[in-house]
Structure formats: structure tokens, C-alpha cells
Amino acid sequence: MFVTSAFAQESAPATEGAHTGTEGDTHSGTGVPAEAHGMFPPFDPATFPSQLLWLAITFGLFYLFLKKVVMPRLGGILDVRSDRITQDLDQAARLKGEADAAVAAYEQELAEAKAKANTIGQQANDAAKAEAEAARKKVEAALDKKLGEAEASIASIKANAMKEVGTIAEDTASAIVEALVGGKTGKAEIAAAVKSVAR
């Protein structure tokens, strides 16, 4: 192609120079400055002392500047940050511990209060039971007393009645005897007979 060949003409001497690197002044036509000696510039030993010297000066100063100024500062920034993060994490852990302790204390208090409430309830329950028991006993005692009295009165009434029974039996017996036998029977006789029968 037309274009490529045109370029090849221009670039050929240069690439040739790059390969051989030892050509003389044959390439002066390509505009190479006089101090380059027509040599591939990176391989020109004439420039070595100057480049090494300035490399040593610039890199040396750069190294010192980084070592003395930049790196302590960067290291400081990063240390401060990591310290701060550690501190914050510690504080968070501490606060969490405090919160946990508070929760535990609250739960303990709650448990204590529950236990207290239970004992109070139990006590009230026991007291109420004891009171009820006492009242029941009192009532029972009163009832027992009344029962005893009633029984005693029944017994006395019964005894009286039994006593009456003798008289009634004597009366009845005398009436029967009178009706059957006729005539009067001695009162004492009948009483004795009744007594012997009742026995």
C-alpha cells in the first residue's frame, strides 16, 4: 500500500538503529541531535554518568523525604485510625457489657420480687387458713357445747319421763287391776309390783 511504504521509508532507519545501536553518523539525516552520536539513545554510554548522578541525587532525596516526612505521617494517620477503631470497638463492647449487666440485674430483681410476692401470698393464704380454722373450731366448740346441753336436757327429760312412766304404770296397773279384780288394791303393793316388772 502506498501509505505503508511511505511510513516504512521514514521509520526504517530508526528501527535499524535500534537493532544495531552502533551505526555511525549515517542517520544524521533523520534529525538526530549531534550529542546523540547517531546511536540508539538508551544505549549511548556517553549519557550514563549524567543519568546515574541525577538518578542518585533525585532518588536519594525522594527516599529521604518519604522516609522522614511522608511515611511517618501516613503511618501515623493509619495508626490513629486503627487505634480509634479499636477504641470504638472496646467502648461498644463495654457498653454492651453494661447493658447485659443491667438486663441481668433487672431480671434478678424481677425474680426476687416474684419470690417475695409468692411468699406474701403464701403467708396471707396461711393466715387466712389459720383464721378460718380457728373460727371453725370455735363454731364447732360452740356447737358441741350446745349439743351437750341438748343431750343433757334430753337425758333429764328422759329421766323425768321415765320417772313419770312408773307413776303412769302404777295408775294404769291400779286401773287395770280395779277393772279386772275390782276392789281397791293397796297403793304400795302396786308400786312394788310395777317396780319388779320394770326391773
Partner: peptide, 25 residues
């Protein structure tokens, strides 16, 4: 379009010490 031109060393401040070219380039 000389692709090598960019690699040329140009003396900006010529310095020569003891036969060595230590120019600021």
C-alpha cells in the same frame, strides 16, 4: 514520526567534571 526521537537526551545545563559529562539533561 521518528519513534526514537522521544528517547534522545538533550543537555539543558552542561556540566563537565573531570572529563565526565554530568550535564543536567
Amino acid at each position: 514520526v521518528d519513534p526514537i526521537h522521544q528517547f534522545h537526551i538533550v543537555k539543558l545545563i552542561p556540566i563537565n567534571v573531570g572529563g565526565y559529562d554530568l550535564s543536567f539533561t
